[in-house]
Design a binder for these strands. Sequence first.
DNA 1: CGTAAGGTTGATAGGACTCAATTTTAGTGG
DNA 2: CCACTAAAATTGAGTCCTATCAACCTTACG
Lengths: 218, 218
Amino acid sequence: MRQLCMPQGLSSDELSKLETLICSARSVQRGEALYRSGDRFDSIYAVRSGSMKTLMAHRDGREQVTGLRLAGEALGLDGISEDVHACSAVALEDSTVCIVPYGALKRLCREISSMQERMHKLLGAQIVREAAQMMMLGSLSADERVASFLLDVSERNAQRGYSSAEFNLRMTREDMGSYLGMTLETVSRTLSKFQKRGLIDTQGKHIRIVDLPGLRQV
Amino acid sequence: MRQLCMPQGLSSDELSKLETLICSARSVQRGEALYRSGDRFDSIYAVRSGSMKTLMAHRDGREQVTGLRLAGEALGLDGISEDVHACSAVALEDSTVCIVPYGALKRLCREISSMQERMHKLLGAQIVREAAQMMMLGSLSADERVASFLLDVSERNAQRGYSSAEFNLRMTREDMGSYLGMTLETVSRTLSKFQKRGLIDTQGKHIRIVDLPGLRQV
DNA sequence: CGTAAGGTTGATAGGACTCAATTTTAGTGG
DNA sequence: CCACTAAAATTGAGTCCTATCAACCTTACG
């Protein structure tokens, strides 16, 4: 957990302070919401096991997947600006999260400058990730989006010490489509096409990347 | 400037500390870059006058507009996570910006908890805005995107005390298209269509919103 | 005032969506 | 543990929206 939540730049003394702060964990069943858009914000979270999706709704009620969080990644930053969550977070499989009370975290950030640094970088990294996602939605074709998404998940798996070539994506095709700005049918067709071309090997939610360079230059 | 940069929750004592921090301003000519992707990050900025766009590049060099900043809005947060700017910021017209050195700002955030609060909310708001933009790109039609963009600019103008019904958009149709994930031709056609329907009145970059409710339900 | 950049509009083509029919997977309960 | 069933995934056919290519007009800057 230490690596996962707040990896770098903390002394072990500081780490123990952090650990007093992470006062609790919580398990979330598949399909259950950790928080919903409109809920009061009082904690941020780190996915300890499993995976989650974040959703945002239009005025008309249509929901779109705005993010995927794998084990070790942070969740809940969407509530900071308004003290109310802007997104909902739903478990893609039975999962557990660490709960980090925001008030206590703020205090710690004031006491320990390396914690402040971490916090800023966490927020800043989310900003950059989302900007990259905007670029993807704004200027890539369906093929390019799917390839780019697979490569992103692969890379994030690698960073967490798992296989970058083979993984289980717990999202449905509909979730993927919603996240990538296309229909579930197009997602399915694109994955089939990649398989025929020998770029990947899919069996439902299990995905193996066969030709990494090939996928990169889709 | 006081309202613009850091409006709420600061005592006047705190404000004067902030003002010692904003040590300088800078003017940026139309078309000139305030910073470029890859530049070392050491300051955040607030647009004092004029307007700017942010750009991000794909590996292949294609650039996309990822943001529009009007007077009073913050700029440069894309550099926090990696100490290097992820975007470029280019002036849409002759503009001036306040320079806020990040190191000094961090120190101030540790001393004054309301400053820390402001900083977190600034970053959090950017995260939520970008998520909303992702939604727009992922699930709206061309018409809906243009309408949504015009309403967004209108609202931001209102917040800054300018007219919400009439404004000058200094972006080109190409910039707008890039930002909205469509071609400049489609932007132009959509604006013409809105004009024919009596929703707006355009003359080049000058835009007047004639039928606000109508535009909302496009 | 000239000229290049920006904007508009038209015709055509193609990529992704929609609707629909099956097949496959996975979660539930006997 | 296996059968059952609803959810998820695949594939096809036809259509529509938006991109592309092209010509022309307008604006603004030097």
